[in-house]
Design a protein around this nucleic acid. Structure first.
Lengths: 187, 187
DNA sequence: GCTCGTTTTTATCATTTGTAAAAAAATCCT
DNA sequence: AGGATTTTTTTACAAATGATAAAAACGAGC
């Protein structure tokens, strides 16, 4: 997905502001398995996915819990670092060979203080992530695991081909065995 | 909590911008039990709590599930309405007689497009809500109900005196009976 | 202080979900 | 293609949570 399309998809920017923002970004590539962001580190880069698939996970005792998947067009951000300048709690791993647009967080913060349109773009970026996160929180509280799995299938039908069921199970907040049971019932 | 304190707590504003924002707000009061925001409605007001306690809940078959509590200093916003101009999914009920600062959402949006500082203030508002929501989502996925209850006690010790255990149980994603069991174990 | 209504706890049983281990299936690599 | 590795499913059992009902505790109002 091209950069201008990603940027404008978040919030339509005037051409000059968009050019300013785009000029601050560069394309980078890493291969499957690379750890893009590390837990316990204050991250200084923000990314957007041009092509590929990534997951964010937190390490627990003897296991990893995936809580987010990103694909083409999605921002890849350690929110703790980006917002509070603190150590993040997540690793972010590339599930495929991935091409990203990268921008230095301090540079982005500087643009927020210089350009009204970019500031509002940054507002919309946070707002859209907020909506998505709130919807997931409510789903976790309201719906059964079966329903959450069905919703995931409907909303992101491609995900199943790109991500292992083990990761999906932990994303849904259940064990892989439970997910397997759910899949058997539905069938 | 005074308005200037609330506004500056989100993001420090220059005096003129703060005055502009404050001038667009007015103080309103409602009594316990009042429904401030309604589900299935596109809300056009945004509030901040001066004094009082509120909860957001979603109606399910024969039950209500509380997913958010707000107290002094917190914003009270139907995110679906505020961000996407769509019908919200939550009712927001006052749990005490409550004093709020109100601003019309279209007015606030207009200020975002006029004042760089206010735009960044709005960005920080969304970012802070995002961090809180993400932390809760991760807690729901990672922690047992017992741990979530203990964390709630630590982080918001006053909550227990202001909110019934039934509401807290649904906030934690468990039944009231389960919460009662947890409390008995801890004791 | 008493009464009514609400909130919280307790008890019992059914259901769901987790854990551990093994089998089956799919995928990878040479 | 074939053997090794990883992923997914299945099974059996244990633990946690839910549903329902009833008892106990608490609180507002008189």
């Amino acid at each position: 997905m091209e950069l201008d399309l990603i940027l404008n998809g978040i919030y339509p920017l005037p051409a000059t502001s968009r050019a300013t923002l785009a000029a601050a970004m560069q394309e980078v590539s890493y291969s499957r398995g690379h750890i893009l962001l590390r837990a316990q580190k204050v991250e200084t880069s923000v990314y957007f996915i041009k092509k590929g698939m990534v997951r964010a996970y937190q390490k627990a005792a003897e296991s990893e819990i995936t809580f987010w998947f990103g694909q083409e067009g999605d921002p890849v951000i350690s929110m703790k670092s980006y917002i509070e300048n603190k150590r993040g709690y997540e690793d972010i791993e590339l599930l495929e060979n991935t091409v990203l647009y990268q921008i230095a967080s301090p540079k982005l913060q500087a643009l927020f203080n210089e350009d009204l349109h970019i500031a509002n773009w940054g507002r919309k970026l946070a707002e859209q992530e907020l909506i998505k996160t709130e919807e997931r929180l409510i789903a976790m509280q309201f719906q059964t695991a079966t329903q959450r799995y069905k919703d995931l299938l409907e909303r992101q039908p491609g995900l199943l081909n790109r991500v292992s069921l083990g990761h999906i199970a932990s994303y849904l907040g259940i064990t892989q065995v439970s997910l397997s049971r759910i899949r058997a019932e539905i069938r």
